[in-house]
């Protein structure tokens, strides 16, 4: 319910859902052929592990905004980051950010 702090198991569900969404988006962007033999988990880095191009990162950000709308202010989050942080970003960091944003918005 809006304004109520979610329980820990609810948070866990949110994180699982967010992780699934992120993996789905990355699979679409990178392509299943490339991902053969690669399992995307929280430690997977966009640049080092997936070799995502910067223009693909823009596509990912757009997909994220489309999926979560105003609940997740990805633009402001990126605005606080240095280029190296963006390049070195991991799936886990994105998931944590989504969960924290949703929690702040009351689930």
């Amino acid at each position: 319910m809006l304004g109520q702090k979610p329980r820990s198991d609810e948070l866990s569900d949110v994180a699982t859902s967010a992780r699934e969404s992120v993996v789905e988006m990355l699979t679409v962007i990178v392509g299943e052929d490339y991902l053969e033999g690669i399992e995307i988990d929280d430690d997977t880095r966009f640049d080092l592990d997936l070799e995502i191009e910067s223009i693909e990162f823009v596509t990912f950000a757009e997909m994220l905004v489309k999926r979560y709308g105003d609940q997740v202010n990805f633009i402001a989050w990126l605005g606080e980051k240095e280029l190296d942080d963006i390049i070195g970003i991991s799936v886990g960091e994105v998931v944590d950010f989504i969960v924290a944003s949703l929690e702040a918005k009351g689930g």
Partner: peptide, 15 residues
């Protein structure tokens, strides 16, 4: 491409 800005100064300036 536009990511040259998106990944550097654009999101910060969007504030």
């Amino acid at each position: 491409n536009l990511a040259a800005y998106y990944c550097t100064i654009a999101n910060g300036l969007a504030q």
